[in-house]
Design a protein around this nucleic acid. Sequence first.
RNA 1: GCCGGAAUGGCGGAAUUGGUAGACGCAGCGGACUCAAAAUCCGCCGACUAAUCAUCGUAAGGGUUCGAGUCCCUUUUCCGGCACCA
Length: 872
Amino acid sequence: MVDSAIIFSSALILRAFMQERYTPQSVERDAQGYWDGSGSFRVTEDPARPKYYCLSMFPYPSGKLHMGHVRNYTIGDVLTRFYRMRGYNVLQPMGWDAFGLPAENAAMANKVPPAKWTYDNIAYMRSQLKSLGFAIDWTRELATCSPQYYKWNQWLFVRLFKKGLAYKKTGVVNWDPVDQTVLANEQVIDGRGWRTGAVVEKREIPMYFLRISAYAEELLSALDGMGGWPEQVKLMQKNWIGKSEGVRFGFPYELAGEKKLLNVFTTRADTIMGVTFCAVAAEHPLALHAAKGNPKLAAFIEECRQGAVIEAEMAQQEKKGMATGLTVTHPLSGEQVPVWVGNYVLMSYGDGAVMGVPAHDERDYEFAQKYGLAIRPVIRHPAGDTVPAPWKPEYAEYGTCINSGKYDGLDFKAAVSAVAADLKAKGLGDKHVQWRLRDWGISRQRYWGCPVPIIHCKDCGDVPVPEKDLPVVLPEDLVPDGTGNPLAKLPSFYECMCPSCGKPARRETDTMDTFVDSSWYFSRYACPDNSGAMVDDRARYWMPVDQYIGGIEHAILHLLYSRFFARVMRDESLLDISEPFTNLLTQGMVLAELYYHDSAEGRREWINPADVTVERDAKGRPVAAKRASDGAAVVAAGIGTMSKSKNNGVDPQALIEKYGADTARFFIIFASPPTQSLEWSDEGVEGSFRFLKRVWAYAANFGRAGAARPAPALLKATRFEIHTVLKQATYDLGKHQFNTVASAAMKILNALEKLQDSASDEAREGLSILLRLLSPITPHICHHLWRELGFGADVLAAPWPEPDPAALEQDEIEYVVQVGGKTRGNLRAPKSADRAALEALATASALVQKYVAGQAIRKIVIVPGRLINIVV
RNA sequence: GCCGGAAUGGCGGAAUUGGUAGACGCAGCGGACUCAAAAUCCGCCGACUAAUCAUCGUAAGGGUUCGAGUCCCUUUUCCGGCACCA
């Protein structure tokens, strides 16, 4: 039956007043005014309804929205509105990740304090977000640069400091020797400072760390239970945490008469008898000691210190090493083993030293070949007992021990156990679990961030700022000049009294990594107005976030830090949960075409795709491209992420002004599924606009006098079509495949248009389904038409449409007919036909007769309701 | 370099668990309306072919299966992350 509840006879009268032309600007202004006026998106805790906390990653206020933001928030809004229509109490908040480097860069460029730049940007971007019509509860807005917010960063830091979960040690940073300042990785270009061009050096400085390693085991094991996260992200986190089980042991040596151990960790203790050298990092104490009397080695270590701390760059540089001249004693054989310095050994992993087994490790093999070190095979691997050059992957495989004395004949597991036991007996080592995950260094030698609440006292050491003195407020009127942190030059900030002894002391001038701000903001949205606590009971109601949406680029750091913070807050009795995000959707990038033009002087100029005219051949294939302004030939350089440097960005604002927010939203949803990259297309936007105009025109003409009533068979077929599409669309929404939901809306309109403006019950029902299906994607036009056609006062309050099983009933089913696995045609059969009937029907058909052509039928495969395959 | 993804017509994409490859849209081509244009509407639209049939066709190569875009192995290219961009 047709859903009569939504059929409303007054619709025809209302319709007479409706404009023929779709004018998105006025429609959207009115709808947004209605939502604002009625507080449609303000929510409070409601134990009677299931809650749904839908969160998109908050933006950095960089100046204006980019298409990636629009995409992110449109996806979140579709989910928000969809769940709302299904009866959930839905929270969708918004805020600003407002501390960070770009504000300092802008400040330097424009001589304006980062605070002013940031607040101006927030004001503009807020207005942009509002013009997109997102169902956001704006009463919960927060900015991480406000003292009311970052006070709680500081408060939590102090708690962790007292617990030992925050602590001080040295860390390595990129140092610009000209500007005398620490550089972020992105400020290092080809190993040089971005402003000075000076070769960057590594420098060790004291910093504060958060002991995320204390939660490594839990962060790893909990991944298994996180069904709502993409496998891909969980796998990346698992590899990042990097649990490896092996043996940690020491090579004894003597230094100035003192007995010491060179500690290493290995997952291949079974190869220990194949050790022919040890390699240590350039920063390793042993290397530094050896360099004292060895100028060549000192020069090599200096060379290793050149360049940035960026691991990707270090991993790609040529493997180099130099002998220290020192030796250590093999703990089991007693042989002397030479110690080398290797630029590929990372001080930050394990003990900053590795044992070298060139026969069974590719990196060690290369190193030994290059420097003429001994290669001693000790494993019988699938390619034999020897390891002739070149390196083969088989050399690294597990096998039984050979040339290993008492361990000969043992397999991997037995050998590792035996070696570990022997090392333990000698007091030199044991089995050990090693993590790749390092503690989180949160100190930044920068101004525009949350001050680290520590006071340095000559007598009392590092003293946390007392709770009553929080927040340590960041002055908002400074302008950095690129030569270090302005806070460190501001006595009024750093001069203070020691809270413990009352004597003059110096305030810490480092600020916190902005990832600290973003690791708990989602909990604060529940209670942003609470000035007395970090979070309260409202956070217990709303947390965890049911659906989190953001870029895949955050798969590891932000998401891992947030998982860590949730546990820290749990252990501080602030939250009841361990996992902050139940379901995670990682959206793809937004891409656009790239065009450039090389000038006569050889300068490459990137041309915005909007300024390019493409010539096509008769089949629509592009053959040439020209700059619209002067006809100059431009080169099509494929597609890439929208960026300033490649000048291929599309401004959301221009789009909204030209077509309206609904068109922008529709195109973004329609163009590709949320998790895949989205390729921008101006023609595609035109097509989306055309579709909304058609929806409008259909509604405006709906039930127009004089339309003939279609034949009953057409009505029935149309209703079948619409309900089939609806069923599919609801399924697609469940798996977050919104692009096909948009397609479904198009299919429904196509079907309705075939009814030629008839105001039949079937058409009215179809239209009400169309508007409800579309309302999460294009809420403004649906809001307007829903009211205008008299379906109700507010489409937000309408229930999600359900497919009617009766409409999906069919008397006949169309089967695909294959012969020998090749599709040959279709066959209609009664719904009731059983297997035998289908076989008889198929074998008797002319279609099958033609292709079987006298061959023996070996068997018949039947997929119920779908397919018949005659195997010959 | 290491870790994680992706690849389907001229283009974006669809194909529920292995079951009619190309839904829906864009571009293109043809037509209607118009003095004309825009807008709108109708039709065609993977390759090969005059057209039909047939054949081929989901990055490349191999395999499993009655049947593979989908599963397995190898390779190529592109994208994300690599701890101070956010």
